[in-house]
Design a protein around this nucleic acid. Structure first.
Length: 862
RNA sequence: GCCCGAGUGGUGGAACUGGUAGACGCGCCGGACUCAAAAUCCGGUACCGCAAGGUGUGUCGGUUCGAUUCCGACCUCGGGCACCA
């Protein structure tokens, strides 16, 4: 029998699926079927598909094919997140246009993806750099603008000096730009923002409704939004101004020993105008970076303004007004009152400047007379002390009391503060969606009228200029004011590319719509039932997409508020790393492995085997998917990605594993096609009547595999579904049954279960079994519950909790009979050694535990 | 520092609501077929022990007839957040 020729078969079946437009989802999906929208995070067209893509898209494809077989209307589209800096860098380095570079990459990546045999509806494909797409995005931007979800303001922003653009807070990691790794600088610029903070509360609250999201992602978003409840109130200052502060600990107000402003606080700035030393101090503070390490070792520094603040409950009590480097302008009001006894930062500060430290919350076990604060602030619960009318209250009671008194006095208000800040979306980059705004000297900022859209990018972008090429392109930049008709200039910034990916899933539901979203189509398909991608987007993309969906929902463009009902974050693909004697990274294809050691293929010199790490160019441990497809075929790589490792964990690519997958492909093919004494019968034959012996055994294995694999796929446990299929394969090849009908039933089930995972092999086997239809169109097999439950149970027999024997017991046997049988077993008799059982526990169909005596104290000790 | 998650054979990993720890894969060992090899097939494979048996799920303790699973403390690794008042 000929070996399975993956290359030929895969090409053939891909052509057949394509010709029959099998995966093209109709515009009018058949009614009466449930819908299922399966989506993987769309790729950036870097030029090549990597193993991470292969894993991601294989998982999505398995779900899409599985749901299709189960009778769902499935939507499974693909597109390209096509704006972004790599295209600009390529353009600058190679002198090509970013557009050509991007579309060429898309063409080659599309071809590579198609080799994987994915069940994708390619008729819905688009790239975010298509003018047809960004036209709709500009419309959406203007709708957001009209609704007040977009605004422009001057603010201190994060400037990435390498990528030459501003960045959103989410894109600054440890003080560095997320792409370039450059330390970001602070600049005061006028920029566009999306008002994501309007949605803080609902973005937070709705996290609890996202039951099919990983807990981890929900926690990360929760922390990022950072809700804290507290009190905002006013201090009367000695210069007769008023100062707003925010606190989460109003209960500690009688422990206050100073009031502090952020160096960036307007009042601090104002005072600095007439106070040279303060101006110097503020300048000094600005120098401190925002990187983690710097903050860690940064000393608490303060400057006494000479002003004082009046304590809200005691007009004779004056608190020093300081400017302190650790007070952030971006949180709360940019001003605080310091209570050193109960806040570590305030304590460090107070010790340095000799300010008073009065404990006002005492732990329940503390002696009020002797309780003092040492080097550590006390932040735990307790009773109030040294606090006039608050004395004796709990922290909660005192918080409420202070809040209501200040609210009554009209100088305070209970508020909720969020860490989340508005999303800065302006980018000083030319390869992005132009912001459809015009700046007119007389009318100010004016939106481009819808009829004048799209604002197209220029045909040619000149990268030789300094700064943003769009800004330097006078032809492009020069425009007229839509309002007064006079000369004006375009906004030369483009939108953050994360905006592009914040609504593409809605666009896929009708990519030809002449409005951003066809509400009818979107309402049918949304939310995405299963979204799959990397954990690295836990905050960035996933938070932005949630915001966009909510904003679109408020504008009645879509009915859903949440875009992704189910989210799955898959692990990375790793590979061993190698270093030569000189410490240089060595690529796996230069390496030969023998006896657990690695040698250079060329010279035979031994190389050091390092840790398994994420495949990356810098470590040279990349395996290209197309090379594997070329040797073994797509089904092998797909099977590898699904086997063994749970999908959320990192998987290690190994040659041995790949060969094992390839051997399994051949094994299935042999099993289906090899000549056997019992020729499997016609496709219409179905098992009937009662079977026993090997026939019953094989039928059981078949139906258990169907039940198990179905359950595993429903729960995205691909590795376990794979194990079920292996078990069924073993059962078929070792079966003694000579009944062709039973064998056909088993083989068909095997092929059907295999179909979502190894679709090409499955088609080939399906045909070999005599079918003229496609397995891709065959319904998912159903198990017979009677065959999954066995008549017999294997019951474990323990003596004093230790396993001594097992026995086969007919279903329905009484406890008494089970106990009697257990007692008569040889190993049990031996273990009992004449002792009478004290107690016998019988759990039907599971276990018998014979206890001779309650373990004495001695016995329990080791 | 705070918040998550994970520690199981040589290895990737199974074990449903506490009930036979190690399914399934990889690797390894032995055998068959072969002149030989590849491929394939059969058997074995947690550890100690000839066996009976004993020991084993990061460590220590607890609850229980029974704990990988529940509780407490700790150790290690991974991830996230971090001057957020």
């Amino acid at each position: 029998m000929a070996r399975y020729n993956a290359r030929e078969s895969e090409r053939h079946w891909q052509k057949v699926w394509d010709e029959r437009a099998l995966f093209v989802t109709p515009r009018q999906p058949s009614s009466g079927k449930p819908k299922c929208y399966v989506l993987e995070m769309f790729p950036y067209p870097s030029g090549r598909i990597h193993m991470g893509h292969a894993r991601n898209y294989t998982m999505g494809d398995v779900i899409a094919r599985f749901r299709r077989a189960q009778g769902y209307n499935v939507l499974h589209p693909m597109g390209w997140d096509a704006f972004g800096l790599p295209a600009e860098n390529a353009a600058r380095d190679k002198g090509v246009s970013p557009r050509d570079w991007t579309y060429e990459n898309i063409a080659s990546m599309r071809a590579q993806l198609k080799l994987l045999g994915l069940s994708i509806d390619w008729s819905r494909e688009f790239a975010t750099c298509d003018p047809a797409y960004y036209l709709q995005q500009q419309k959406l931007f203007l709708e957001f603008y009209k609704a007040g979800f977009v605004y422009r303001k001057e603010a201190d922003v994060n400037w990435d000096p390498v990528d030459m653009t501003v960045l959103a807070n989410e894109q600054v990691i440890d003080g560095r730009g997320w792409r370039s790794g450059a330390i970001v600088e602070r600049r005061k610029l006028s920029q566009w923002f999306f008002k994501i903070t309007d949605f803080s509360e609902e973005l937070l609250a709705a996290l609890d409704t996202l039951e099919r999201w990983p807990e981890k992602v929900r926690v990360m978003q929760k922390n990022w939004i950072g809700r804290s409840e507290g009190l905002r109130f006013q201090f009367q200052l000695s210069n007769s101004e008023k100062l707003d502060v925010f606190t989460t600990r109003p209960d500690t107000l009688f422990g206050a020993s100073f009031v502090a402003l952020s160096p960036e606080h307007p009042l601090a700035q104002e005072l600095a105008q007439t106070d040279k030393k303060l101006a110097d101090f503020i300048a000094e503070c600005r120098k401190t970076g925002t990187a983690e390490a710097e903050i860690e070792k940064a000393e608490k520094l303060g400057y006494d303004t000479g002003l004082t603040a009046v304590h809200p409950f005691d007009t004779s009590w004056k608190l020093k007004l300081m400017v302190a480097n650790f007070v952030l302008m971006g949180y709360g009001t940019g001003a605080i009152f310091g209570c050193p006894a109960h806040d570590q930062r305030d304590l460090d500060f107070a010790r340095k400047y000799g300010l008073s430290v009065t404990p006002v919350v005492l732990p329940s076990d503390a002696d009020p007379k002797s309780f003092v604060i040492g080097a550590e602030a006390y932040t735990g619960p307790g009773k109030l002390a040294n606090s006039q009318f608050l004395n004796g209250m709990t922290v909660e009671q005192a918080k409420a009391e202070v809040a209501s008194r200040l609210e009554k006095a009209g100088t305070g208000e209970r508020t909720v503060n969020y860490r989340l800040r508005d999303w800065l979306v302006s980018r000083q980059r030319p390869w992005g969606c132009p912001i459809p705004m015009v700046h007119c000297p007389t009318c100010g900022v004016v939106p481009v009228p819808e009829g004048a859209l799209p604002v197209l990018l220029p045909e040619k972008i000149d990268f030789s200029v300094r700064g943003n090429p769009l800004d330097a392109d006078l032809d492009w930049k020069t425009s007229v004011c839509p309002s007064c008709g006079e000369a004006a200039v375009r906004d030369t910034d483009t939108l953050d590319t994360f905006a592009d990916s914040s609504w593409y899933f809605a666009r896929f539901t009708d990519p030809a719509s002449d409005t951003p979203v066809n509400k009818h189509a979107a309402d049918y398909w949304l939310p995405v039932d299963q979204y799959i991608g990397g954990i690295e987007h836990a905050i960035l993309h996933l938070l932005y997409a949630r915001f966009f969906t909510r904003a679109m929902n408020r504008l009645d463009l879509v009915s859903v508020a949440e875009p992704f009902a189910g989210l799955f974050t898959q692990g990375m693909v790793c590979h061993e790393t190698y270093k030569d004697a000189g410490g240089e990274w060595v690529s796996p294809d230069e390496v030969e492995k023998r006896d657990g050691k690695a040698f250079l293929r060329a010279s035979g010199a031994e190389v050091q085997i390092g840790a398994s790490e994420k495949m990356s160019k810098s470590r040279r441990n990349v395996i290209a998917p197309e090379e594997i497809i070329d040797v073994y075929g797509a089904d092998t790589i797909r099977w590898f990605m699904l086997s063994d490792t749970p999908p959320e964990r990192d998987i290690e690519w190994t040659d041995a594993g790949a060969e094992g997958c390839w051997r399994f492909v051949q094994r299935v093919w042999r099993l289906v096609t090899e000549p056997v004494s019992v020729r499997i019968t016609s496709i219409d034959d179905k098992p009937s009547g009662n079977y026993s012996g090997p026939e019953l055994q094989l039928r059981r294995a078949t139906h258990q595999a169907i039940a198990g694999a179905t359950d595993d796929l429903n729960n995205l446990r691909f590795n376990k579904a794979v194990a079920q299929i292996y078990s069924l394969t073993n059962a078929i090849s070792s079966s003694d049954s000579s009944d062709g009908v039973i064998k056909r039933e088993a083989l068909q089930a095997l092929v059907l279960l295999l179909a979502p995972m190894m679709p090409h092999l499955a088609e080939e086997c399906w045909r070999a079994l005599g079918h003229t239809t496609l397995v891709a169109e065959a319904p998912w097999p159903k198990h017979d519950p009677a065959l999954v439950a066995s008549d017999f149970n294997t019951i474990a027999v323990q003596v004093n909790g230790k396993l001594r024997a097992t026995m086969q017991v007919l279903h329905g046997t009484s406890k008494e009979d089970i106990e009697a049988r257990a007692m008569s077993l040889d190993p049990v008799v031996r273990a009992l050694d004449g002792k009478a059982p004290n107690k016998v526990i019988v759990v039907l169909s599971r276990i018998v535990n014979i206890v001779t005596s309650a373990p004495s104290v001695e016995e329990k000790k080791p």
